[in-house]
Design a protein around this nucleic acid. Structure first.
Lengths: 207, 207
DNA sequence: CTTTTAGGGTACGTACCGTACCTTAATATC
DNA sequence: GATATTAAGGTACGGTACGTACCCTAAAAG
């Protein structure tokens, strides 16, 4: 095990600098995140894995939490494209299933542990939320707007808090139940018993 | 500063045992929680504050998280009695304001940090949830049932996930926004834009 | 070629968890 | 009342990890 693909085959003392080194550190940190989760992410191991030392890390990120957030960003590249099935119920379910899948994946667990560990650093928290939770907010508004255009939902339904209500309830399941993924029946229940009735209830009040 | 009110004025070597010592430890841990929050709760400091040593603690609780949960229990004694204003909207707002108050209190912050730190220990998590979040679930069902009895809400509205939807949205605000309390306008919005429309929408579908 | 910048190596200081070991006081048992 | 047992006190330790300091050296800038 002498060949380290991340370094140019130590023929001579080739020392990485700047962006190259930064990338190597982030790669190492992201790999550690995947293997051990955020609680298992240690500065020493990241430094070792990146083939550098803690100095280089602390020159770029002030502490472990900041590195964790930065490394997590490398893991989540996919942007959530809103589905378009022609029916609001199907759109909502699809979106919810997708998010459930994301949240129950290893990356999702990492995200959750990160979220819980940076609660006292608002900057990092905001950065995380930007990448994860609220990124989906736009998608929910989109499917709702399409439903309105089809006449499937009243225009009064278009409201950020309403649009993302299903997402919020799903997130709550994760907070409440701890580990593992949320069963599909719960997703269906959220859509049929809460989300759709809510949309309906925001229409013009019946006599 | 020689007088320590928690110990009988070291006249002779009076050694506390059993329940007395346990209470002293829990008091010390609860005080530390209030002063420094859960992240600042350390076994050494609790031992010192209780006038004992870590041995006595570890003989009772297996680790720091368990002690934290046990100590938190000492801080939350009040049980949530459901309001009864005669109107669903007022009941919901009152309940929501009460919970907002609880969550934004120092105890609420402790609860949140605890919740985030014991995510991997399902037993402790369940114990915490029992004391805090789901304790309110019954209250929400109660005010909803009363509204149904008054003819203010359709009987179909009685559903656990529906009843606690407002609570869930409020909790989400805390998770999303980090520190501080949630402004009252948000509570009103949750009730008027989500909770009440949801209740209405679960009535018999019009035309 | 010299100066500046930034990475490498390493050793610390500190904090904290959880454990081990022995001593000693308080209770239980005879 | 004497003795055995239980549990608390005191203390030191091993282990881990964060964050810092120092000095040396390679790479880039001038």
């Amino acid at each position: 095990m002498t060949g380290d693909p991340t370094r140019p085959a130590a023929s001579g003392p080739s020392r990485r600098r700047g962006a190259v080194l930064e990338e190597a550190i982030l790669r190492a940190a992201a790999d550690e995140l995947l293997e051990s989760g955020y609680p298992g992410l240690t500065m020493d191991r990241v430094a070792k894995r990146a083939g550098t030392n803690k100095n280089a890390i602390y020159r770029r990120w002030p502490n472990r939490a900041a590195l964790g957030v930065a490394a997590y960003r490398r893991l989540v590249t996919a942007r959530t494209q809103p589905p378009d099935t022609g029916e609001l119920r199907e759109d909502a379910l699809t979106l919810l299933r997708r998010i459930n899948c994301d949240l129950s994946s290893p990356e999702g667990e990492i995200l959750r542990s990160l979220l819980s560990s940076v609660g006292d650093e608002p900057e990092l928290l905001a950065e995380l939320q930007e990448q994860a939770g609220d990124g989906g907010s736009a998608a929910w508004l989109t499917i709702l707007e399409r439903a309105v255009a089809r006449g499937e939902a009243p225009p009064e339904a278009i409201h950020p808090r309403v649009a993302t209500a299903a997402l919020t309830l799903l997130r709550n399941e994760y907070v409440t139940r701890g580990l593992g993924s949320v069963p599909d029946s719960v997703l269906v229940e959220i859509v049929d018993e809460v989300y759709l009735p809510l949309i309906r209830g925001r229409g013009p009040a019946e006599g």
